[in-house]
Amino acid sequence: MTAQPRQGMSETGHADLTLDDYLPYRLSVASNAVSRLIARAYEDRFGLTIPQWRLICVLAEDGPMTQGAIVTRTVMDKVTVSRAAQGLSRRRLVERAEHHDGRSHLLALTREGQRLHSEISPLAMAYEAALIAGLAPAEVALLKRLLCRLQGAANALAGDAAGPR
């Protein structure tokens, strides 16, 4: 009689991959669901993409920045940041100014961009509140800490020294 593999184990003795139990998959699916929900609201009400909204938030929070600094801060790729900046510039929500290095530009929110940020921020906070309504404050704090640790572990495995913010 041959030995049968244990539940969740392959014949080679390695754990079988079950997608719904695979943490990277669960994180991706949850992130996509939240992003889709919020993207619909920002697009429908304000005509903004998620990258544009992130760029607005970073500039509102951190002040004028180069596109390179925004790439680092948001972990979005250069093309995504460039497209978001161009779209916001066309709408006069951000403006470009010469950077002291002469090779890049600083992006800054215009008054209209600041106004839009002030209008959207309460909506963003309401979405967050609705998403975490079923969690205790301690669970929310733990979730945030764990996500930062996972991001740090992923960065370390990728050889990226930049840690989570």
Rank of each mutant, 00 (worst) to 15 (best):
L150W: 05
P24A: 05
Q4C: 00
L135A: 09
R149I: 12
L150Y: 06
T12K: 13
G87Y: 07
L123A: 08
A136S: 09
L116P: 00
R149Y: 10
A162D: 13
R83Y: 11
L147W: 04
V140G: 01
A97L: 13
G47C: 15
Y25D: 12
A84M: 05
M76D: 11
E11R: 04
E98R: 07
G13L: 06
Q67A: 10
A162M: 07
C148V: 02
D62T: 07
V140W: 00
R91W: 07
A85V: 11
L48S: 09
R40M: 08
G159P: 07
L142S: 02
R36F: 08
R103W: 08
G102Q: 15
P64G: 03
G63T: 15
M125H: 13
L107D: 13
L55H: 00
V140T: 05
Q86F: 13
D20S: 08
E119C: 09
L19V: 11
D20C: 09
R40I: 03
T110E: 02
A108P: 02
H100D: 15
D20H: 12
S118E: 14
L17H: 04
R92I: 08
E112W: 00
A158M: 13
M1D: 00
A156P: 07
L135E: 12
L19R: 07
V94A: 06
N155R: 07
A3H: 03
L143T: 04
A39P: 01
P137R: 02
Q86W: 11
D101F: 14
A15V: 13
A3R: 04
L17T: 10
S104N: 12
A41Y: 05
I50A: 03
R165D: 07
E43R: 13
A136D: 10
M76F: 05
H100Y: 14
A129E: 15
Y42H: 12
R165F: 04
L131Y: 11
G8S: 09
A130N: 15
A69Y: 00
G8E: 02
R6P: 00
P137Q: 03
E98S: 14
A33M: 10
A126E: 15
V71S: 02
T12P: 01
D62E: 15
P24E: 05
L109D: 06
V58G: 01
L123Y: 09
R103H: 14
G134E: 08
Y25Q: 14
P122R: 02
Y127A: 10
R96D: 11
I120L: 06
Y127S: 03
V140C: 01
R165P: 06
D62I: 06
D20W: 01
R111K: 02
G13S: 10
V79H: 03
R54A: 06
A69I: 05
H99E: 14
E139Q: 05
L157F: 08
L142E: 11
L55F: 04
D160C: 02
A60Y: 07
Y25S: 15
E128I: 12
Q52P: 11
Q114G: 04
Y25R: 14
G87Q: 08
G13T: 04
H105T: 11
L135W: 09
S121L: 11
E119W: 04
R145T: 12
